[in-house]
C-alpha cells in the first residue's frame, strides 16, 4: 500500500512540476493578499502581526486545498484517463493520499513568500521551534479542506465544482476569523464561528505560532469535520462512475 501511495503522489507531483504555472498561481494569491491586507494594517504589534500572518498562510493553503482540489479532481474526472485509473487495482486510499500529499507539497511552497513578507515587512516574529510547530498545525488544519475538495470534486461536474468550492471557501474563511480576528466579528458570527472547521484550524495555528490558548470546542469540531469529510469523500469516490449522460 505505501508503494501505491508513493506511485500516485509521484505521478501527480510530476504533472504539477511539468506545468509549473499552477504552482506559481497558488503562490501568487496568498502573497498578494498578504501585501494588500496584512502588511499595511497590522501596525507595530508583533503578536497581532504574527497571528495575522498565520491566518493568511492558512487562507492561501485552504484555497489550494478546497478550490484547487475540487477543480483539479472534477476536471480530471471528465478526461478519458480517469475511467482507466479506476480500472487499476487501487481503492480510494492511494488516490486520496496521492492528491493530499502532492497538494501539501504545493501548499508548503506557497507558504514561503508569505513567511518572507511577514518577516521583512511586518513586526511578526517567531522562533524556529514555533515555526515548525506552525507548519505542523497548518498540515493538520488543511487536511479536512482537502477532503472537502475531494468530496466536491468527486460529486460535481467541473464548472459546478469550481463555483461550489468558491461558495464554501469565502464564508468559511470569514466565519472562521481568518480575514478579521474573531474578537471583532459581529455577535451572531461569533456564536457560529467555533463550529466551522476554519476556526478550529486557525485556533490550532495561533496556538502553535503565538501560544494563544485554543478553544476546545473548535478543536473538537475540527476533528469531527475531518472525520465527516473523509467519510463523505470516500462515499463520493465509490458512487462516482464518471460522467453520466441520459
Amino acid at each position: 500500500m505505501p508503494s501505491l501511495i508513493l506511485a500516485h503522489t509521484r505521478y501527480l507531483v510530476i504533472e504539477q512540476i511539468r506545468v509549473p504555472i499552477g504552482i506559481l498561481a497558488g503562490t501568487f494569491f496568498p502573497a498578494v493578499t498578504m501585501l494588500a491586507f496584512v502588511v499595511p494594517f497590522t501596525g507595530q504589534d508583533a503578536a497581532t502581526a504574527t497571528t495575522a500572518t498565520g491566518s493568511l498562510v492558512f487562507f492561501g493553503a485552504m484555497s489550494s486545498a478546497l478550490t484547487g482540489l475540487a477543480t483539479a479532481v472534477s476536471q480530471d474526472r471528465e478526461l478519458p484517463w480517469d475511467p482507466y485509473l479506476r480500472t487499476l487495482p487501487a481503492g480510494p486510499l492511494p488516490r486520496f493520499a496521492g492528491r493530499i500529499l502532492s497538494t501539501l507539497a504545493a501548499v508548503l511552497i506557497s507558504v514561503v513568500p508569505v513567511l518572507v513578507m511577514g518577516a521583512l515587512l511586518t513586526e511578526a516574529a517567531i522562533t524556529p521551534a514555533r515555526l515548525l510547530l506552525g507548519l505542523g498545525a497548518l498540515v493538520v488544519g488543511v487536511v479536512p479542506f482537502m477532503l472537502m475538495g475531494l468530496f466536491v470534486g468527486f460529486t460535481l461536474v467541473s464548472k459546478a465544482a469550481m463555483a461550489v468550492s468558491q461558495l464554501l471557501f469565502f464564508p468559511m474563511a470569514i466565519l472562521g476569523g481568518l480575514l478579521l480576528p474573531p474578537q471583532v466579528l459581529p455577535e451572531p458570527v461569533q456564536a457560529v464561528s467555533p463550529y466551522v472547521p476554519t476556526r478550529g484550524a486557525a485556533e490550532l495555528i495561533w496556538w502553535a505560532i503565538a501560544g494563544v490558548r485554543p478553544d476546545a470546542v473548535s478543536l473538537v469540531m475540527l476533528a469531527v469535520w475531518t472525520g465527516a469529510m473523509a467519510v463523505a469523500a470516500a462515499w463520493a469516490y465509490r458512487r462516482d462512475e464518471g460522467r453520466r449522460f441520459s
Binding site: 505521478y11 510530476i14 504533472e15 511539468r18 506545468v19 478519458p80 484517463w81 480517469d82 482507466y84
Partner: peptide
C-alpha cells in the same frame, strides 16, 4: 487499455 487520447501528455 486506456483510450490513447486520454494518456497524460506531460508524463
Amino acid at each position: 487499455t486506456p483510450q490513447e487520447t486520454g494518456l497524460p501528455a506531460s508524463l
